[in-house]
Design a binder for these strands. Structure first.
Lengths: 235, 235
DNA sequence: GCCTACATTGATCACCGGGTCAATGGCGCG
DNA sequence: CGCGCCATTGACCCGGTGATCAATGTAGGC
């Protein structure tokens, strides 16, 4: 009994990797101390030695899962784009990520729905909240600088780019009367837009879990694009 | 030992009600034969007598959960409305339902993510699929009859987006731009619209679970409304 | 009233989960 | 070399789970 010593961090990583692997392939329920230990090639007791309890292990696992989730959305390269382009780009990036890591996303949902523990929920919800926050600024910009059709001034959005690969987007609701309070030009307020975008992405994440191959980012993007006001419009 | 006889159906309903109650308030994990039996005021063995296994119990529970999910969307009263109004109405009804029965929706997700069993998943996914199907016809109508503005419905798609307001498409992964056929007047094809609507609602359902009070149906409806083409003016 | 059919009981089994712990191994240091 | 520290082991405990089953009570037909 007794085994080769390994540096603390490395052992923890080994265990976590094993746990992650099991969770991804066999579900969260399959993550038991014994199975993780076996998969990691160690004894069960060691799991409790490094993480004090199973809860500790799962917390750490959630850390891994949540780590770096929002990095793609803060890519500085995005700052260069005009608001609507940036928004579109962010959505595309996010959708691609969801499809690519659908197993991880599924695991995240499993965490949320299986463990009703307050701590887990709070952290995941916080992550979702940051999601919304990440989209709000762009939405504000997009809505704000959106449609200068009536009141001239700057058309900042449309600088020089001659729109080489301009997508379809035939026409858009140019002058819709904003029934909703605080609803500026585009017909949607920034908050409404952000809320909708987040809902759209979250909904897509569920579809990505159901059938990753069937998710069509273009369908959702086409919808978003239709929201985009067009200053000059043919009739 | 031995107890008062009750008609088969009634006993089953009693057990199911108890199981449902426990599942709603304490989560799916808390649904054990013993707890259900205690809550129903019977002995544990009886649970297995009526439902052969715990799986059987859960199947029946899922039945209860899935039953009548789509009824509201086929309300004949909806047929009288114009397409876009009907679509809007359906979404509103659905969102309200999600908020009202958020606990049930959460339970549904718990079923989906906790039990990775094929049977459960298949049934829930089928339900989601029907969801999509329920929205498709309206979307078709809405897109089709959408914009009598100017000329014939068919041009739009890739006609000639003068693209004054369309800066460079972010990355335009070739497939997107022109090839996205079947996108009539509104800027979105019927399928895209249906996909987006379903995603929107599913996303909203997640938010409803997080915090039912914070869900703002108007925000999402405002977005949908912004998708609606305005020929001239409406109220 | 009796007897068959069946709902009902609760003790019981095998199993598996989280968590503990004394014993043991290796490793560095004096 | 010897000593002590600590990672490591795996057997062990306890509780809870799904499931079984002989025994028992009740209802309804004759």
């Amino acid at each position: 009994m007794g085994g080769p010593k390994l540096p603390e961090q490395e052992r923890c990583d080994t265990i976590l990797a094993a746990a992650y692997q099991i969770a991804l392939t066999e579900g969260l329920d399959a993550v038991t101390a014994r199975r993780v230990a076996t998969a990691a090639g160690i004894s069960s007791g060691l799991v409790f030695f490094h993480f004090q309890s199973k809860d500790g292990l799962l917390q750490a696992l959630l850390d891994v899962l949540l780590d770096g989730t929002l990095d793609a959305l803060t890519d500085p390269a995005l700052a260069a784009l005009a608001p609507w382009d940036r928004l579109e780009r962010m959505i595309r990036v996010e959708l691609d990520r969801l499809v690519q890591y659908h197993a991880g996303v599924e695991l995240l949902f499993a965490f949320y729905f299986a463990r009703r523990d307050e701590v887990f929920r709070a952290r995941i919800e916080a992550s979702f909240g940051r999601y919304h926050d990440a989209f709000l600024p762009v939405c504000r910009e997009a809505v704000g600088t959106a449609v200068p059709v009536g009141s001239g001034s700057t058309i900042a959005t449309t600088g020089a780019p001659g729109a080489p690969g301009a997508p379809d987007a035939p026409d858009a609701p140019d002058e819709s009367a904003g029934t909703r309070a605080g609803s500026p030009a585009g017909g949607v307020s920034a908050d409404d837009l952000a809320t909708s975008v987040v809902a759209l992405i979250q909904g897509a994440s569920i579809q990505a879990i159901r059938n990753p191959a069937a998710v069509d980012p273009e369908a959702l993007l086409a919808t978003v694009r239709a929201l985009r006001p067009r200053p000059a419009e043919r009739s």
